[in-house]
Design a protein around this nucleic acid. Structure first.
Lengths: 169, 169
DNA sequence: ATTTATGCAAAGTTTTTGCAGGTTG
DNA sequence: CAACCTGCAAAAACTTTGCATAAAT
């Protein structure tokens, strides 16, 4: 279990962010920078379940004239994922996606291998299972992901009777 | 200039390949080639649960003087995964891993984000859950993967002090 | 004979890194 | 101020692709 040191430090959040985020950063000697705050803010603005790729996030940053470089975008995504603030998702598309890690409403994904469509579904049991299994191996669980890969109804019928190769979107 | 001698790879035969594999290939008009057989044979020789990256597999192919190119290695891994003969695994390391898909002894993974060590655990419940959830969305389930990302006992204590160590091998 | 697969090398994507100069605590 | 972070561009890591030839059905 992570040490829940709920320090009542009145860390004045610059953007009204949850103190836990700052704790997570500082805990390991990382610093709070404008770039990191901007990126976190963008994730918080997204609808629950929205996931962004590094390029997509960078695109949003550009739109806002945020002076965050692509390199920093990647560095930040990696760092925040390792701190457990973001979830790193891989849908076998050749690049990763990231979403805000939320304690409530955990969800999992079902991915169509033909059209890359992803659906989300909730399942509390899986969350618990992840914690339990992690504990069994003495791991500190950062994220548990259940992914179902398959063919969506559309692509299934599209390929029926065909002997075509695979389509690459 | 490359007077390629015949693709005289040891063609299956003694590997006791299951007919279902050939069916899977032929079903969609794919062909059975020496390269594909060699690659499948290598996977069958691995211990249950062993997963190989494209480069690792290519390394093995080179060791055996199998004239399978890296391009074909990639193409074959992708094809076999799409046919459901291999499982494509992504451990957030920047490259994918593949393992033989086996109907019995399904297993899942727990991955250390610091040292990339992976452990396997069996859980039949998760397999069933994947099928059930897939059915709910009318998906044809090709693979269901449950992955737990975290910090292994070793890395947990190593980081207690200060190190941010997140080096890549 | 026709269609599919392979090898090669070049090109494509996605992600990482070295450094000098800014920033944070 | 010392440690940490960032931007930039170059480079690395990984994967895909065009095309001529080879092989499977």
């Amino acid at each position: 279990m992570p040490g829940k040191s709920k320090q009542k430090d009145k860390i004045a959040g610059k953007t009204g962010a949850q103190p836990s985020v700052y704790d997570s950063l500082r805990k390991k000697g990382h610093r709070i920078t404008a770039q990191r705050e901007t990126i976190l803010a963008i994730f918080r603005e997204q609808e629950h379940g929205t996931h962004l790729s590094a390029e997509e996030l960078y695109g949003i940053l550009l739109q806002r004239s945020s002076n965050v470089s692509l390199a920093t975008t990647y560095r930040t995504l990696k760092l925040l994922s390792q701190l457990g603030l973001l979830r790193e998702l891989d849908f076998a598309e050749g690049h990763k996606h990231y979403e805000l890690k939320q304690d409530k409403l955990p969800h999992q994904h079902i991915i169509c291998l033909a059209c890359n469509q992803t659906l989300e579904f909730e399942d509390h049991f899986l969350e618990e299972a992840g914690q339990k299994i992690g504990a069994r191996y003495n791991f500190e669980v950062i994220d548990a992901q259940f992914k179902i890969f398959g063919m969506c109804p559309n692509c299934r019928s599209a390929q029926k009777g065909k002997r075509t190769g695979m389509t690459r979107p």
